[in-house]
């Protein structure tokens, strides 16, 4: 199985550690990961902000770049949602029949990281050790977009030493919403304030999510409040072997 990593432009730029963690976990499980250099962005920001024609070259690029792989793994549920739901819409609206076909061909081979581990590889214990108190925030795209269900929890429960705590009102949106946080910064901030309070109430020392964008949003609010709670992407917890390999 040829596995490609789609890092996403946001993780590539801001959170390369998450990409390295995905590589670490997959290699630990005995797989080889490739990183096609021509990859850039799924076009989610443009699509969600209403700039559809601008996103079309990115859809073409994605289909072209990943056409030859058996599996495309990405640590971002919202980008997977864009590829599954947004790319066909753009291809139908602006693209050629060939693009529609190529988009339809690649989409089923794109897997969010936890989907890939649990559904494709059939693994929940990836040999991680992370002795910390962790709250998991199901991001909207994890929960309602991709319907990841308990996949992240199953993976986290198998981590040695981890103490999982409940996050109150976990299914509420953190208020990020991409450009929503800029266009409606105050409303976004009000949602963030409630989410940050829930994180603090949970007693967790680490906040975990499957998407760095929401995590950066919540973490940004917590950091501003001077909270020591840190945001860590799920992949990085799964890559961790604190205290030595198991």
């Amino acid at each position: 199985m040829r596995i490609a990593l789609f890092i996403t432009c946001f993780n590539d730029t801001m959170f390369p550690g998450t990409g390295r963690a995905v590589v670490t976990v997959l290699e630990r499980l005995g797989h080889t990961v490739e990183f096609p250099q021509e990859q850039t962005c799924c076009g989610q920001m443009h699509f969600n902000t209403g700039y559809r024609p601008e996103a079309v070259p990115l859809v073409e690029r994605f289909a072209r770049t990943f056409a030859e792989y058996d599996a495309v793994v990405t640590p971002s549920p919202s980008c997977v949602g864009m590829i599954r739901d947004g790319h066909p819409v753009l291809a139908a609206q602006y693209g050629s029949p060939a693009l529609q076909r190529r988009t339809a061909e690649v989409a089923p081979r794109v897997h969010e990281f936890t989907e890939f581990l649990t559904d494709v590889l059939g693994v929940t214990d990836v040999g991680a050790r992370f002795p910390h108190k962790v709250a998991y925030h199901p991001t909207c795209h994890s929960l309602r977009g991709l319907r990841l269900g308990d996949r992240p929890h199953r993976l986290l429960r198998a981590v040695e030493g981890i103490e999982l705590v409940d996050l109150p009102a976990a299914d509420s949106c953190c208020g990020f919403g991409g450009t929503f946080a800029l266009k409606n910064a105050e409303t976004s901030g009000a949602m963030l304030a409630d989410k940050a309070r829930a994180v603090l109430d949970s007693g967790a020392e680490v906040l975990c999510a499957a998407d760095n964008s929401c995590l950066m949003h919540i973490g940004g609010g917590l950091s501003r409040q001077g909270s020591p709670v840190r945001g860590v992407h799920l992949a990085e917890i799964l890559a961790a072997v604190e205290g030595g390999a198991r």
Partner: peptide, 25 residues
Amino acid sequence: GWSDTRDTPAPPAQSFRSWWRANRG
């Protein structure tokens, strides 16, 4: 509007793609 209530992490010195090129390329 974002930075009124949120900190932003400083971008890392090395992007993922440049790390990959240096370590896996």
